[in-house]
Simulated assay, not measured.
Amino acid sequence: MALVEVQRISKSYGALQVLTDVSLDVAKGEVVALIGRSGSGKSTLLRCINGLEPIQAGAIRIDGVQVNDPTTNLRKLRQEVGIVFQSFNLFPHLSVSDNITLAPRVVKNQPPEAARELAREVLRRVGLEDKLDAFPAQLSGGQQQRVAIARSLAMRPKVMLFDEVTSALDPELTGEVLKVLESVAREGMTMILVTHEMGFARRFGSRAVFMHEGRIHEEGRAAAMLAEPKTLELQTFLNAVLH
């Protein structure tokens, strides 16, 4: 059974149709890269998977639990679905350790010492163990984004969603965040990423999904699909991104 099942969903904001009849299954351990122009529906799809946006038709399930069922406890479900945005959303008045452990302490009632040890462990995974007691303002953008990833990892989610996590960063900082994503992918985390980083998608994506005008226009094994796009729309998009 797929870990994430998106079945024929549609999403609109008033008269504006953003997603039309989108279906996508993601197996445990898969890394799926969502690519496409701005406005093609990629970020909206991620937000729907996490229950941040209601859908008008279709169904979404995470590990068998239906996201869009009114009886589903979304707070509980979101513990299993980490999401990292392009803006880091760290609390400026809290230390790195407190930013990371806030949810485990509040949601999972983790005692402070265990939570701090957890913070140390996830910071080690993103290469920032020495920043445990730093504050966000003392960190570069790349470091803040790595802390945001660590914060998501601390909840031990079943699947992680990444929405353009490098788009606000300059190339050098982008590289350090991509390294973290690579290591998380290697550890077997199920990941769905909205990304413009075609090199990353090609190397680490099990699959690429090209969205165009609110639909899945083309999908396949990432390396093969990016090397030989079958549709004119994907060719045009890749030419624009890669040149």
Rank of each mutant, 00 (worst) to 15 (best):
V4P: 01
V6Y: 04
L19K: 04
V22R: 01
D25N: 15
D25F: 05
A27W: 13
V32R: 06
A33Q: 07
I35E: 07
G36N: 10
S38D: 12
N50E: 03
L52Q: 00
Q56P: 03
I60D: 00
I62G: 04
D63N: 15
G64N: 13
Q66W: 11
Q66C: 12
N68T: 05
N68Y: 04
P70S: 03
T71S: 14
T72H: 06
N73L: 11
L74K: 03
L74I: 05
L74H: 02
E80T: 13
V84Q: 00
P92V: 12
L94A: 01
D98L: 10
D98F: 04
D98I: 07
N109P: 08
E113N: 14
A114E: 15
A115C: 13
L118W: 07
E121W: 10
R125C: 01
R125L: 04
D130R: 14
G141N: 10
Q143M: 07
R146A: 06
I149H: 02
S152A: 12
F162R: 02
V165S: 05
A168I: 01
A168S: 09
P171Q: 14
L173F: 11
V180C: 01
S183N: 10
S183C: 03
V184L: 02
A185K: 01
R186E: 12
R186T: 04
E187V: 04
G188P: 06
T190C: 02
V194P: 01
V194R: 00
H196T: 11
H196G: 13
M198G: 07
G199C: 13
F204E: 08
R221N: 14
A222I: 07
A224R: 13
E228K: 14
T231S: 03
T236R: 15
L238R: 04
L238Y: 05
A240C: 10
L242E: 15
